[in-house]
Design a protein around this nucleic acid. Structure first.
Lengths: 216, 216
DNA sequence: TTTCCGCACTTTTGATCAAAAATAGATTCG
DNA sequence: CGAATCTATTTTTGATCAAAAGTGCGGAAA
């Protein structure tokens, strides 16, 4: 046999696993992370966990203290405004590009995901809401076929992730608006500009909620 | 004594070293990277090199193939336009924020660095030019005190780095304009808007040169 | 009480090794 | 001759271990 195995290396698997833990609010802002602790809790060797943590650190999802410790960064007004600046530039661009490329099969997929979002909101299931919401956005962005932008967006989502847990912890899922219907409708109409506007609004609302929680 | 040693871990040192190799054009686009090869060439253990490579990969400076191999990515029109979009949003913002905060000591430092840029251009010293040019920009951006934006900018520079070698290889340093004087003068005048414009123009010119080289 | 120090315990770090995987050449087969 | 296969070599991967570094607590001294 030969070349190009399809099974991913352990550190890759662990990376994805921890990434999702961060994205879906399983860490508290400020929480210290230990390599040993993580590797024990997910039952993996310490070496691949180390690599995954370096990667997440490089993406800003974790912060490496000068004491060789690693922690989940806390959100601040200062950080939030930087994140907002870039998200408002990158994600609408991704949405625009996606709208130009997307085919009906993917639009249908998005509509499907959106029903999961609604269901999660109705059920007050925070973790499921965060997962479905993430999936909606990145399924859309995937269609843009712009890997560099997508990775930047992902890095920014990782930085907001832990705060979303706090937002939902405070308000539950009650306050969450679903801005997605606007977007899928516009996609069906082929109205690129409207798709962009919907995503802009979605980001604005989400970050406003985080900011509000921050100040409280 | 206690706590908080000031000596950095090996993987951190190696990260910086390799980062500079990429930034200053010591790798050719498309060049394959091997962990073993790197660790032998810089005389380090394989473990910290691995960590550094993961980190650079997460930043987009290296690309990990599905064959478990790692290479220096080649530039393309598609990648370049994504990079341009974000650089034109992030770096002018950094420059603006920097201009608002900066003190005379740092401005003097920038003027000092700029003489090094000029000298490198005169001498046709590509590596020195790239190093000084980098130092100019990031000394400025540092003053913005906006770590998230700064890290995004750095990630984008890393992705352009290897192409700059090609640009300079083709044209030498002759074609390089020095846009920096504009910027330092505007900083002295406290003209924030003009600083921003100067940086925008600098980025535009640099990327235009890369694009031109790409098409040739 | 407060501060400082020492000590036991935890964690990170980086080298090393065996196993898995990939590559490149040489060889065989059609 | 070209394509597929086998094999020797290189490389990556992940576990393990010893050494370095950090943490935090308890007790002694001010």
């Amino acid at each position: 046999m030969n070349h190009v195995s399809d099974k991913k290396p352990e550190h890759e698997t662990i990376y994805v696993r921890v990434k999702e833990m961060i994205l879906f609010g399983e860490f508290i802002p400020g929480q210290p992370i230990t390599i040993l602790g993580l590797s024990e809790s997910i039952g993996a060797g310490v070496t691949p966990v180390r690599e995954a943590i370096r990667r997440l650190t490089a993406e800003g999802a974790l912060r490496s203290l000068k004491n060789r410790r690693v922690e989940v960064p806390e959100m601040s007004d200062h950080r939030l405004s930087q994140i907002e600046l870039v998200r408002m530039s990158v994600e609408p661009a991704l949405a625009t590009m996606a709208a130009a490329n997307i085919d009906d099969r993917v639009i249908a997929e998005l509509e499907q995901i959106d029903t999961l979002v609604d269901k999660a909101i109705d059920n007050g299931d925070t973790r499921e809401y965060l997962a479905a919401n993430y999936q909606f956005h990145f399924t859309l962005y995937e269609a843009a076929d712009a890997l560099i932008l997508q990775r930047i967006a992902e890095s920014l989502w990782l930085q907001v992730g832990p705060s979303l847990r706090v937002v939902c912890g405070r308000y539950g899922t009650a306050k969450l608006l679903d801005q997605h219907r606007e977007a899928t409708l516009a996609l069906r109409e082929g109205d690129t500009e409207k798709v962009k506007k919907a995503i802009e609004e979605d980001i604005r609302q989400g970050l406003a909620l985080v900011r509000q929680t921050l100040r409280a």
